[in-house]
């Protein structure tokens, strides 16, 4: 059930850049709150609701810590609540701290979704054309890692029976064996690559991604929504000033449009997943 990951990698990547650019750059609590709920919904659909709530609860001490730490480090702001060693603990700094905490939480949650949706295959597809050599190294390393771990466990189980060293020494000995083994096999790999004509021509990439009509529709809607969002931001209609006094400017219809379009952008993948899920269940129930 990851319907959203079936879109073209370029489109998904643009989507995440669009969401991150607002959730990381813009320190307006309305955007951050929208973005937070959007990522929460998306993660609930990708994982289960229970694990998402548990991971959310885990971050609460962290957010409280950031909120409290900010006024301790920065003493800007016009309304002091109390003084610690002649340094003011201000209301503005406290509020700014909570906004920062919300922002960090947002980014962490969006990155959780990003990790699930954007696997190494998509990264390779995206950067394979730009940088063929590095993506080749990348994919080879991804292939070697499980092999090495497996080989290490084999060596370790033998070594454990043979002699009892200290744990660190034992591990390092086995690791050394893995290194020797990996160098020997690497020559075979390299030679067979050369034999098949590597470094004689252009490296092509296998990708099973095709740019379909759906991708085009999604791309257009992402671009429209993000432009609508940014119109108000660029015009300073949704600007929030924290120091010395909090000024929350929410002027006019453009701010409203901006909030709405950002909300649509954030809730898009979650709603899309739910829709696809319902469609699937409906088609099963028909059989």
């Amino acid at each position: 059930m990851k319907a959203f990951s079936n879109f073209h990698p370029v489109v998904i990547f643009i989507y995440f850049i669009a969401v991150f650019s607002v959730s990381m750059f813009i320190q307006n609590p309305v955007y951050l709150f929208i973005s937070m709920t959007g990522s929460f919904l998306f993660l609930c659909v990708l994982n289960t609701i229970k694990t998402t709530i548990i991971s959310f609860l885990k971050y609460i001490p962290f957010t409280v810590l950031i909120t409290i730490l900010n006024p301790l480090f920065s003493h800007n702001g016009a309304t002091p609540l109390f003084f610690i060693n002649d340094n003011a603990f201000t209301l503005e700094a406290l509020i700014y701290g909570s906004v920062l905490a919300l922002m960090i939480l947002c980014v962490i949650f969006w990155f959780k979704c990003f990790n699930i949706i954007f696997n190494s295959e998509k990264i390779l597809f995206l950067f394979g054309k730009i940088s063929p050599k590095i993506s080749l190294i990348f994919s080879m390393a991804l292939h070697f890692i499980p092999n090495f771990s497996k080989y290490f466990n084999e060596v370790l189980s033998v070594q454990k029976k043979m002699k009892s060293n200290s744990k660190l020494k034992l591990y390092i000995n086995c690791f050394s064996a893995v290194i020797t083994h990996s160098f020997e096999t690497s020559v075979d790999t390299a030679d067979s690559m050369s034999a098949r004509g590597h470094s004689t021509g252009k490296v092509t990439n296998f990708g099973r991604f095709r740019f379909k009509t759906n991708d085009f529709i999604l791309l257009i809607s992402i671009i429209t929504l993000i432009i609508l969002t940014y119109i108000a931001i660029v015009a300073d209609n949704t600007k929030v000033v924290y120091y010395p006094v909090i000024i929350f400017s929410n002027s006019g219809i453009s701010a409203f449009i901006s909030y709405i379009s950002f909300a649509v952008l954030c809730f898009l993948p979650g709603i899309y997943e739910i829709k696809e899920d319902l469609k699937w269940k409906y088609s099963i129930s028909k059989i």
């Binding site: 080879m140 070697f144 090495f148 590597h198």
Partner: peptide
């Protein structure tokens, strides 16, 4: 770069991740 150097870098990367 030779193919062998590419493979060596891949191996060292894989080793450090593993």
């Amino acid at each position: 770069t030779s193919t062998r150097t590419l493979v060596i870098i891949a191996i060292m990367t894989a080793l450090s991740v593993a």
